[in-house]
Computed example of a mutant assay.
Amino acid sequence: MGLREYLLKRLVHSVFVMLFVVTVVFAAVRSIPGDPARLMLGGDVDTATLEALRAELGLNQPLYIQYFRWLRRLLTGDLGESIRTGEPVLGSIVQVAGPTLSIAALGMVIALVIAIPTGIISAVKRYEIEDYLSTTIAFFGISMPAFWIGIVLVLVIGVNVESIPTFGYTPIDEGIGPWFRSILLPSFAVGFPYGGILMRMMRSSMLEVLNEDYMRTARAKGLSSNLVLFKHGLQNALIPVVTLAGIFLAVVLGGVVAVEIVFGIRGLGRLLIGSINRRDFPLIQGTVLLIAFVFVLANIVVDLLYTMINPRIKYGGGD
């Protein structure tokens, strides 16, 4: 199967996945207790005023009509308007998506930078001091919540390193340096725990690869240890790690919520929590839909990376 055919197949599959997500999100949001109209008007309001607002917001219509109206608008790229502010949902999301996506992306880079080298060292130096040290760091990362790591970083770095901010976000259009410094600590707080998980996966995968027959054959042919390790071993050991990293990207987006609060950053997490508290259905749906889209896109990218890591892997599982 060629690249074009494979991408077409994955895109068609992604459309059905997103349709399923859209349906589940719509149903889940409508199951949240509370009436948006009553929350907007307050508890002491007469029935006529309440029903008039519900009719204005389209909340008095049957759920299936609300669903198909939203789906029709979605197909044109229109996510609707916020119930609370009346602003376009897409615009509200774009305003706060930058910090969250920046932190999540850099967090995944940090996680991989931590996981791949330490996982390789831990596998090659099995049961030696390097292995125990790497494993200890990994378990520390796994056991510590991201928000707790963020608090520690604020207390330690904020006091001792003035050049690295511990509060707020600087947009990238104000300079790459200030932008990078503003997301460095929250990204590390997000990436370190997942780096520990990926490190354990990298270690297990590398240990399995090192015991394969083709690795022993390569060493028997007199190839250097580094060539055997990085040319033959790393190609196959990275596959499960990259797969897990693609899955973690969506999880990281969810994990950014608490970290944004610690560092005083207004991102998708705080927008989602606020919209849930206000029962702002269109805003909730749009935010969750964006996270689902990033997850689907990340999995397509991961599949494309397989052939870059190991050219022997063919699209569609062919030989």
Rank of each mutant, 00 (worst) to 15 (best):
M202P: 04
T243Q: 05
A111Q: 07
M108Q: 14
F188T: 13
S275F: 02
I300N: 02
A105N: 08
L227F: 11
N236W: 06
G264T: 05
S187V: 10
I309F: 03
E56Q: 15
I276Y: 03
V294W: 09
F16I: 11
D78H: 03
L57E: 09
I129P: 02
I164A: 10
I116W: 06
D46Y: 08
Q235T: 01
G318P: 01
I65E: 12
Y64E: 10
S143G: 04
T76C: 02
D35A: 08
D280G: 06
S92R: 14
L112I: 11
P311A: 00
S143Y: 01
M308Y: 01
G264Y: 04
L304W: 02
A111T: 09
G233R: 08
V262K: 07
E81L: 09
G43V: 04
P193C: 10
V89R: 07
L19N: 02
A138C: 08
M308S: 00
A27Y: 06
R216P: 01
V228L: 10
I149R: 00
Q95K: 15
W179M: 08
L3V: 13
L39S: 06
Y132E: 08
P171Y: 12
A292I: 11
I273D: 05
F139H: 12
I137A: 15
E130N: 10
F192V: 14
V161M: 14
V262E: 05
L106G: 00
L283R: 03
G107R: 07
V156N: 03
Y306P: 00
V301E: 01
V89H: 03
S92V: 06
Y127H: 13
T49W: 02
N226S: 15
G254P: 05
V256A: 12
L297K: 04
R266I: 14
S182W: 10
N236K: 11
A105E: 02
N160K: 15
V25A: 13
F281R: 05
R4T: 10
D44H: 06
N310L: 01
D44E: 12
P165M: 10
M206I: 04
T166A: 07
K9V: 00
L101K: 11
P165Q: 08
R30E: 09
